[in-house]
Amino acid sequence: MRHLLSISDLSRDFALEILSTAHELSRVSENGTKKLPTLRGKTVVNLFAEDSTRTRISFEAAAKRLSADVINFSAKGSSVSKGESLKDTAQTLQALGADAVILRHPASGAAHRLAQGRWISGSVINAGDGTHEHPSQALLDAFTIQRHLCDSKGDLAGLHIAIVGDILHSRVARSNILLLKKLGATVTLVAPPTLIPFAWQSWGVEVSHDLDAVLPTVDAVIMLRIQKERMSDLYFPSSREYSALFGINAERASLMKSHALVMHPGPMNRGLEITAEVADSSASVVVEQVANGVSVRMAILYLFIAGNQED
């Protein structure tokens, strides 16, 4: 495979191969090795048409640990984020000899367009496109769950994962639903009906509006960031009411099984969808998710870029 655009493009086996590769790479890192020669001579471009410091840094660290040359191209506010010149930008990157483009873009499907436009010969890695998908986040979430709750080679069969919050606008949710189901987990979405997509029935998930009822049954809960501007778009009446119904606090967290994990893709709105007490509790693996992100992105870069040369 040349491009990572959507979780739906991955077979179950290849998804597991990414996770097991990440597992090996994290052990290499833990052995003290900071740098591997794997991608020496390869050029990786971080093309970020939308702010996301943590995803960009994570991909940058991953690429550098594999000895790739990294060019950061922050295009926010430029014509790229307006979408007028995705083609022109792509042709520039092609001229620079990019072996891979890590693309973050506010438009759903932007990575598909970049990959299918035949403007570049390198790999396109989707680092989040609009409200569509964020495959590397889903892979690092699955990796984190696997490390805590499963055999490192196995899938997530038998686990029950809840995703809580703004499903409608969440690329993290879309990728996670696809991947968790692919790996055998059961998924329940918890949100007010306004933040669940119309026609969610085709997703093969459960939907609940009662967080207290769902928490005792889950092995992990993924809390999504809630944008305050959704309030003005009438998705919910107030942030106070949202927190009361769909935020996680210590009392709610105590409903969970003892082994259950609290996850969040970040950045967190402490006090809105998650209280500081829960975010910093022993059940929270939020910081570990960040560390795992580097290993998973190293695995992605290795598997999608190494050897992907037409000569």
Binding site: H132, R171, R174, P197, F198, A199, W203
Partner: peptide, 18 residues
């Protein structure tokens, strides 16, 4: 709105047109 509101728009993350 970008496309018909239904299961495809839900999956693609494109704003639905009911």
């Amino acid at each position: 709105s970008q496309m018909n509101e239904g299961s495809i728009s839900a999956t693609l993350g494109l704003k639905g047109w009911p």
